[in-house]
Design a protein around this nucleic acid. Sequence first.
DNA 1: AGTAAAAGGTTTTTT
DNA 2: ACCTTTTACT
Length: 696
Amino acid sequence: MFDSTDNPLAASALNPAQQAAVDHHTSPLLIVAGAGTGKTKTLVARVVRLIDEGVDPNRVLLLTFTRRSASEMIQRVRANSSSRAAGQVWGGTFHSIANRLLRQFGAAAGLPANFTVLDASDATDLFAMVRTEEGFGERSKRFPRANTIASIYGHMVSGQARLDEVLEKDFPWCADHADDLKKVFTTYTARKRENAVLDYDDLLLFWRGLTKSSLQGALGDLFDHILIDEYQDTNPIQADIVEGMCGPTTQLCAVGDDAQAIYGFRSATVANMWNFTDRFPGAITITLEQNYRSTMPILRAANAVLRQPIGGETPHFAKELWSSTPLGPMPRLLTCHDETAQSAWVADQILDSRERGIDLREQAVLFRAGHHSNGLELELTRRDIPFVKYGGLKHLEAAHVKDLLALLRILDNPADQLAWHRVLSGLEGVGPATERRLGAELGIGQPDIDPVRNFIAGRGADGTVRVPTAAKPQVDELRAAMADCVADGNESAALSPAAQINRLRPFCEMLLANKYDNPAARLADLDSLANTAEQYRSRSRMLVELTLDPPGVTGDWAGPPHLDDDWLTLSTIHSAKGLEWRHVYLLHAADGNIPSDMAIGDHDGMAEELRLLYVAMTRAKEELSISFPLRYHVNRFGSDDRHVYAQMSRFIEPALEHFEPVSDGSMAEIDLRQPAGVGQQNVADHVDDMLATLWT
DNA sequence: AGTAAAAGGTTTTTT
DNA sequence: ACCTTTTACT
């Protein structure tokens, strides 16, 4: 599912362009690789060749977009290289490599060795904490929410733009609060430093900082070869890092496709590809255009979609992929009545394909947003079709899981105020006031004090820690559990991470029963986490790995018991990047979803939405089905039945000739584009006439 | 004063 | 489904 090795064409020798990309070694290299043109294969072949020619694997850095693709590529390098050390290639995401380097060189940047990494939701929680502490919520009406603040901050930092510009361009309704936002950002940054925590952006910023420090020479000498996958989705900071890691003799090779850039919302910019040859003098470009993945009918449709101008221009290289597989069915376009009809049709097609010998593993359902598959998931469950879902909500972000992780994080880094906040505020009878007092008594956030020790002893700097009566049972249980989990400097006596989770379980049980209305289901999630924890021997390592590479799949998390050997993939389009399946179904291709109505009116946003559709379509090898229901609920949260009628994605219209329209019968009786009639009149006139008879 | 329960508002995509 | 604010209760 993840590679092309089962494709006989792709498994054969490299084509001339691919071979040239593998062989080139005299200057920086940019490989412009269209969808399905074998870029992974080319990268792997290049690394294999380097190692087999004697390059030390430890001096090869392979930066990828996800950890999964890094480990898969290294796996393939190992399988194809004659060197036993081939697996020692440095591979991972920018963030995971940053973590690795900062653990090693971070002291030079003023970082403590045991720093904690905040994921996006942790960062949001920290903003919420600062926001509350400073009282902005009460002082000014309509002060931006924590989510919005985090979003503004992210735009600002990862795009390296000034606050004023970001507010003006993307958050005009928050512009009035600029001054208070500055205070929030200042406190947020100070708090991170005091608590020895880094957020995702910090990992990149500190790494870049090191490349501009006195360590520059040492870092530039770490690697002989740097290879970067998915270069179109890197941001300006990442491009700086790449440049900073290149010493005088480092060979650089970047691979990307400007037509598949879909992370603009994270400040990724294809300018990094456009500028490559300017920034890295002497660089040459090699383009891969032969597609080994899809049939011509699918490529024709995808090319036609991509070709349409957005706001009068075509914002990517004009590129025409061609395939050596000319024949196959045209992509199908299903118009149906509502989501239920769509789910039924897709499930029917999937089962039908399986009857025809296409395993579920060779089929995938893609969609724009995580919740778009909710209806289908019900239908699949009803029909006993096993599936795993990529993207969307992550288990790690569920409140109760974060409760448990906060306990582990306190043990790992007692200075972590955010984790303490989560633990203390969850206790029975503890509100903001008591939490503040407990924090002071325990010495949380004060230098050179270990609040964990104080908590276990029940004794703070200024005497006893006063626990509210209601919290007493919970606190007693937690004290005993934490006492058992603290290593106390004696590594060999320490419980394993999984054992620590089990030791904390009784406390969690009390907590969940008190806090949530479905404690049993939530407790089961904690047991799944204990399962996952079995593979780790170090607690801190487990915490950082879970943060940098959260289990993105239901299957990774719990290993659903009903899963047999064959299962269907559901995935957001973003999470499907780089993957391929024989049959692909794209759900909810209605205007407002693709393009997302939030992007409408924004030129760059619209261009990105178009590329998103292109990415989705080019995942299909043999058959592609795009569907859109006409009827949508007004809002995703409401439980009412209010609905609106949607239209087909505007991006598909110009390419309609490349699709075969299909119907599932749910539309047969009603043509919604025609006004319904009564006698010779349409319904509205009929009603108005009747009403008029009541008073005339 | 301080906490707990209830009501009100939300906009996607992810390292 | 979750986060914030408002209100009710001790």
